[in-house]
Design a protein around this nucleic acid. Structure first.
Lengths: 142, 142
DNA sequence: CTGATAACATCAGGCGCCTGATATAATGTA
DNA sequence: TACATTATATCAGGCGCCTGATGTTATCAG
């Protein structure tokens, strides 16, 4: 007989991340963004002029999926794409001024969630928690 | 300027869970199951005769989504649903004999992944890790 | 008993991410 | 130069989960 799932690390990891995801969705919804769109805005804010392929890799989704994300951000005039002068195929994405404002606002919301998350951990244990997540991540990628 | 996401607990939580999910998908694929289907088989193995609504709640998805999961499991003859004798509307789901075999096989695969996950943590720190996940989950649900 | 409310199953449509296929430009190699 | 390989963007279709709407059955209040 299969036992109760509750004491499994994988199960609890899933639960925690699922709740976080819902929370982020709720926090970003008033801004008209979803977590994937936020991730792109934040990434382009930190490093402008990246290609669709670059952004996809950093966000851990496929280029095909990122295509859809970028298309919507372009429709919303938060991101613009230009032909790379040196390459005929590459298109470099960057934030519009409006996109920059939106990115900052979204980041504030996300940081608010992050603070709630960190408040659940003893201050001196946050680094341990970060290390734990990294170890779990590495173990699953091997 | 938005900073690097790497040191954020939320970001690393997402990364770890994402990798776990991919790993589970890969482990279950040879059995013809996805993580959601596995969750239902495991749940019905532990507690037979649950309704669609019950299963949805335990799996943290909507009844509408669980409907699709159950329909596929029925098509695969791993689960069967019968009218509840006392209620005209409720349908109670349970494993078929074939479903029971599949559930056990899937559970073995999932436990193998769980072992890899736990191996990434010092043995005396597993309970701390479980507690951490629970605190993060609770913090996000409030 | 009657009518309102809640629980349950289910259909329809949308969104996000996936895989597979295709087209084009850049790059490496004979 | 010519050709194969790689990188990039993009279209098409599938799958899983979502919200909204609908119909049916239990349950409860009067």
């Amino acid at each position: 007989m299969t036992k109760d799932m509750t004491p499994l690390l994988g199960y609890r990891l899933k639960l925690a991340q699922h709740a976080l995801h819902r929370r982020l969705e709720a926090a970003l919804k008033p801004l008209g963004l979803n977590p994937a769109q936020y991730a792109v805005l934040a990434e382009l804010n930190a490093r402008p002029d990246q290609t669709n392929a670059d952004l996809a890799e950093r966000a851990f989704i496929t280029p095909q999926s990122m295509q859809g994300v970028l298309a919507k951000l372009e429709d919303s005039r938060l991101v613009e794409r230009r032909q790379d002068v040196r390459h005929g195929r590459r298109q470099l994405a960057r934030l519009t001024p409006e996109g920059h404002v939106k990115a900052e606002a979204a980041n504030a919301e996300v940081m608010r969630v992050e603070e709630v998350l960190e408040a659940a951990v003893r201050p001196d244990a946050i680094q341990d928690a970060l290390d734990l997540m990294e170890r779990l991540h590495s173990a699953m990628c091997r």
